[in-house]
Amino acid sequence: MTALVRDGYAGLLRPVLFRAHRGDPEAIHEDMIAALALLGSLPGARGLVGALTRSVGQPVTVAGVRFPGRVGLAAGMDKDGRAALAWQYLGFAFAELGTVTAHAQPGNDRPRVFRAAASAGLVNRMGFNNAGAQALANRLAVAGILRGNGAAGIPLGISLGKTKTTPLEEAVPDYLASFDQVAPHADYIAVNVSSPNTPGLRTLQDGDALGDLLGALSRRAQRQSPGSPVPIFVKLAPDLTWPQLDEVLGAAADGGAAGIIATNTTLARDGLAAPDRHLAHEEGGLSGAPLTARAREVVGYVTEHTTLPVIGSGGVMAPADAQALLDAGASLIQLYTGFIYAGPALIAAINEEVR
Rank of each mutant, 00 (worst) to 15 (best):
A3E: 15
D7M: 11
A10I: 14
A10F: 05
L13N: 06
P15M: 06
H21E: 15
D24N: 15
A27P: 10
H29I: 10
E30C: 12
I33F: 08
A34E: 09
V49P: 10
V56C: 05
Q58W: 01
T61A: 04
T61R: 04
R66M: 04
R66T: 11
P68R: 09
G69S: 03
A75P: 01
M77N: 05
K79I: 14
R82G: 01
W87A: 10
Q88Y: 02
L90C: 12
F92A: 07
A95M: 02
E96Q: 07
T101Y: 01
G107W: 12
N108I: 13
F114D: 13
L122V: 14
R125V: 15
F128H: 10
A135N: 07
V142M: 07
I145T: 04
G153P: 13
G153S: 13
I154Y: 01
P155R: 12
G157S: 02
G157F: 03
L160Y: 03
L160A: 00
G161S: 03
K164I: 13
A171N: 05
A171H: 03
D174F: 01
S178Y: 00
F179R: 03
V182R: 00
H185E: 02
A186M: 13
I189W: 03
S195W: 06
P199D: 13
L201N: 01
L201P: 04
R202A: 07
D208V: 10
G215R: 07
L217A: 09
S218Y: 06
R219H: 08
R220A: 11
A221I: 02
Q222N: 06
R223Q: 15
Q224C: 02
P229Y: 00
P231M: 06
P231Q: 03
V234A: 01
K235R: 07
K235P: 00
D239H: 05
L240Q: 12
L245N: 06
L245V: 09
D246Q: 12
L249D: 15
G250T: 13
G250K: 04
A251I: 12
A252R: 10
A253R: 10
T263N: 07
T265R: 05
R269W: 10
R277I: 13
E282V: 15
E282R: 15
E283Q: 13
G285C: 08
A289K: 14
A295V: 08
H305P: 14
T307D: 14
T307H: 11
L325S: 03
L326S: 09
L332E: 11
I333C: 05
Y336I: 12
Y336T: 08
I340Q: 09
L346I: 03
N351K: 09
E352H: 15
E353L: 14
R355P: 00
